[in-house]
Structures are given as C-alpha cells and as structure tokens.
C-alpha cells in the first residue's frame, strides 16, 4: 500500500503533471469485465508469495476460450509471476507459494492429486528468451510428443513435427535442415521453434512470457502474426512489455500494478477509454 503510493508519487514527480492525482486506492476491487461465460481458465483470489514477500494480491479473472488476453504493466508488477502460476511453473522456484484457485475447465490445478505433467501438456509456455534445447530442430519439436508418447510411429512423429512447424510458420525456412542444431537459428526463428515445440503436444492454452522482448522488430512482427493465427485454435495469455503489441494482438487486456490486477477490459477500451486512473497514467506513458 505504502509502496504503491510512493511509486505512484514518484511517477507524478518525475512526469510533473501536478493536476493529475495518482494517489488512488489500489485496494479497491479490479474494475472492468473480469468474468465471462464458459471460461477456459478462471482464477479466483490468487495470491503468490516468494518467501515472506507477497508478489500477487487477490487476483480474480477469467480467460475465455480461444481468446488472446494480454497482461501489461510496469516491470516488477507481477505479471510474469502471475502467468507462471497458471501452469505451475512457479513450483520450480524455491520458496514460492500460491494461494487461491486456478481453474482449468472447472478443475483446480493446485489440487493435491493433480499431476503437473498433464497440466503442463495442456497449458504450454513460451519464454522470454528463446530456449531451444541443444538438439536438432527435429528433436526439439519431437521432444514433447516423444516424452508424452503421442506418436505411434515414426511417420506419426514426422507428421507432428511438420504440422507444428507449419503452424509456427517455420516449415519453409527449416525443412531442408531439420537435423541441424536448433541453436543455429536466428533469434526470431528460435522463438518460433519454441512456439512450434509448445504446440507440438497440442495444448489447450499457451502462455507467452514476453515472447518478443529479445527479438528485432521484423521477427516481432512475424511472431505477432503467428499469435493471431494461433488464436483460432488456442487460448493464449501473453505478457508483454509493449503496449502496442498488446493493442495489436489481444482481445482483452489486463493491467497489473504492484501485484494487483487493476483493470480488465476489451483491448480497444483499455487503450481508448481506460476506466482506472492508473491504467490511464500507464498507457499515456506517465510511468512504466
């Protein structure tokens, strides 16, 4: 609370707009249309802690089927942490604790008896920095189907690899060198490889954690196109640093501030008439 005020205050100081009072009470509930009918995933009162430090405060929001939801906010606002709690990738972080409910098709993924293997096969993830395995392009894509036993034969596997690469728009570029190391590709190609790798196990939801932050504008444009195509088949949650990107690819946008979800609204509305002062301050570039 105190921190929020201080941060907001410093933002006003530096941007020198004395008329605008940014000292808003952030404890109030999230504004906007948080919920929807038949959600693919729904989060209820999610709190995330790193040791004693709380990173996410009481976030409740739904993600509809086949929608692209963008999560924006200043750095350190917890958007990545929140995203990682959607497929329990936070389990790998020492001392990380998640409270509240995260429902996937109505089932809590933090249930005791749930196997994260199945969960993560259904909720895939693409990371900030492209992280292809030090294996061939083919092996990178085939990794998921192999460990999950999805391919019954070599032909099956070839099909999955080709299909995934095609969906990721990488097939034409790499079909001649499937057996060369994936690390030899350019940054943008590597990231599309990672996306292809994620969709090879046909997940239902894909989480993307700033997938373009390490890429140049041209590569970024390709990934954005790709996201649009993918949204026909997948539900996508994307964390991004760039408001333009959120505006371009997403249907709804969620604005996070210091671990709290401030506003969720259709993207168009967020960028034209934000309901909340903090959102407005952020999208008009007064801090972030």
């Amino acid at each position: 609370m105190k921190q929020a005020k201080a941060a907001a205050k410093s933002a006003t100081d530096t941007k020198s707009n004395p008329k605008q009072n940014l000292e808003v009470d952030t404890t109030q509930a999230t504004v906007g249309n948080r919920f929807c009918e038949n959600p693919k995933m729904s989060m209820r009162d999610v709190n995330v802690f790193y040791g004693d430090k709380q990173a996410i405060y009481d976030v409740s929001v739904d993600i509809a089927k086949n929608e692209v939801i963008a999560m924006i906010g200043p750095s350190g606002c917890g958007k990545s942490t929140f995203l990682r709690s959607l497929n329990r990738m936070n389990d790998t972080v020492d001392g990380c604790k998640v409270e509240g409910e995260v429902l996937l098709d109505g089932h809590n993924i933090y249930q005791q008896n749930l196997d994260v293997v199945e969960l993560r096969a259904r909720v895939g993830m693409v990371f900030q920095k492209p992280n292809p395995f030090p294996k061939s392009i083919f092996e990178n894509i085939a990794y998921g189907p192999k460990i999950h036993g999805l391919a019954d034969s070599r032909v099956d596997l070839d099909e999955i690899v080709e299909g995934s690469l095609k969906k990721a728009g990488l097939w034409e570029e790499v079909k001649e060198r499937l057996h060369q190391p994936g690390t030899g590709l350019s940054g943008g190609q590597q990231q599309r490889l990672c996306i292809a790798r994620a969709i090879a196990v046909s997940p239902e939801v894909i989480l993307m954690d700033e997938p373009c932050s390490a890429l140049d504008p041209i590569a970024t444009a390709r990934i954005e196109e790709l996201i649009e195509e993918l949204s026909q088949n997948f539900t996508i949650a994307i964390v991004t640093h760039s408001m333009q990107q959120a505006a371009r690819v997403s249907h709804r946008t969620a604005y996070f501030h210091l671990g709290k979800l401030i506003e969720v609204n259709p993207t168009e509305q967020v960028f034209t008439m934000p309901e909340h002062q903090l959102t407005e301050a952020y999208i008009t570039g007064r801090f972030g």
Binding site: V117, N131, P134, I147
Partner: peptide, 15 residues
C-alpha cells in the same frame, strides 16, 4: 546448464 533449458522442458510437461 541454464535454468531456461529446464524451464523449457518442464513447461512442456516433462517430468
């Protein structure tokens, strides 16, 4: 070995 490698694999649902 960078943590990113492990994350990439775990995120695919690998044990």
């Amino acid at each position: 070995v960078p943590q990113a490698m492990r994350d990439g694999s775990l995120a695919m649902g690998a044990t």
